[in-house]
């Protein structure tokens, strides 16, 4: 099978600051993965091609990269599954991390965020003589998040990190959830307080990119949403995020549809002078949006009306116990 590997390259030593593209025409076997093809280039055509790889079996997390623009592991992505009609496969280094050379990125920003969440089991009181007693199901449920191989595919495609590098990111948050959900860990209050801040769980925009690209089914965004619930359930509600979530639900429950004007008022706590003052900058930031909406005649009506079947909606909430 023929494939044209279109590789995004970067070599500050020989090519200067600019990245460049290079194509390699290869004859490969049907069962080849993207990593197999890259290794064929590196081992037999261009030894200067730099990349990381180790296990070849999607367990070491070395070879996360962009394949046709979407992040994944080179070692478990088969060429036949990603080859385009014109016979090419486009390969680029992982995103949202500084490129060192070709497909090698600097992972230190990734790890420094992981370290921030205190990524180790923390217990209070003396250790038991034997093992901790822990429910069978709780430990089974942890296998998925513990299965995170720290490849960085989620970070690479995170749309928040693209615009705000301060966001702690999906990998670190999934790691945090692994400890929050561990019945042995006793630092949930401290973890919630940390993750409730700016850069934490509320900065996720729920775009789903991390869930789609995670090669191990860790589903970071789902875990971020669970942490949000856990934070609210722990009674920590003084954030725009918590107000947004609760406001959203209460409006829909009352009217059957969303009233965006009220949502703004609830989210930014306009009726509470202390909260509103803190949000003054964000509120002014909305004015241009409101102005543009007005010009396009898209501004929500001042008085929002209940829909006809609102009682059904209320029943749904009732059934959910919310």
């Amino acid at each position: 099978m023929k494939v044209k590997l279109d590789v995004g390259r970067f070599n500050p030593e020989s090519e200067g600051d600019k990245s460049f593209r290079q194509e390699f025409d290869l004859e490969v076997e049907e069962y080849y993965t993207v990593l197999d093809a890259l290794m064929q280039v590196r081992d037999y055509e261009d030894p200067s091609l730099a990349m990381r790889c180790s296990c070849r079996a999607s367990i070491c997390g070395s070879c996360a990269m962009k394949i046709n623009g979407t992040s994944g592991l080179g070692c478990n992505t088969k060429i036949v599954d990603v080859i385009k009609k014109d016979g090419t496969v486009k390969v680029d280094p992982a995103g949202n991390l500084p490129v060192v050379k070709d497909l090698v990125v600097d992972m230190e920003p990734f790890w420094s965020k992981v370290r921030e969440i205190k990524p180790f089991l923390q217990t209070k009181g003396p250790e038991p003589q034997d093992e901790y007693i822990a429910p069978q199901q709780a430990m089974l449920d942890l296998v998925k998040p513990v299965g995170c191989i720290m490849c960085g595919a989620c970070v690479s495609d995170c749309t928040v990190l693209e615009v705000d590098s301060n966001f702690i990111g999906p990998a670190a948050l999934a790691k945090a959830s692994r400890f929050i959900d561990d019945p042995r860990d006793e630092m949930n209050a401290e973890r919630f307080a940390q993750l409730n801040q700016y850069t934490g769980v509320w900065d996720c925009t729920r775009c789903m990119a991390c869930v789609e690209v995670c090669p191990k089914g860790v589903a970071p965004m789902d875990r971020i949403m669970t942490i949000r619930d856990q934070i609210i359930n722990a009674g920590i509600k003084n954030t725009n995020g918590a107000r947004h979530a609760e406001g959203f639900a209460s409006i829909v429950k009352r009217y059957g549809t969303l009233d965006e004007t009220q949502l703004v008022i609830k989210t930014f706590g306009v009726l509470n002078p202390i909260v509103a003052l803190k949000n003054i900058k964000a509120l002014f930031g909305l004015l241009p949006v409101a102005y543009r909406a007005l010009r396009k005649n898209k501004l929500p009506p001042v008085f929002h009306h209940k829909i006809a079947g609102v009682s059904y909606i209320k029943n749904i909430f009732k059934k959910l116990g919310a």
Partner: peptide, 11 residues
């Protein structure tokens, strides 16, 4: 186990 390994449990 004390370090945090999520070993499989019995009932």
């Amino acid at each position: 186990e004390h370090m945090g390994v999520v070993f499989n449990r019995d009932e």
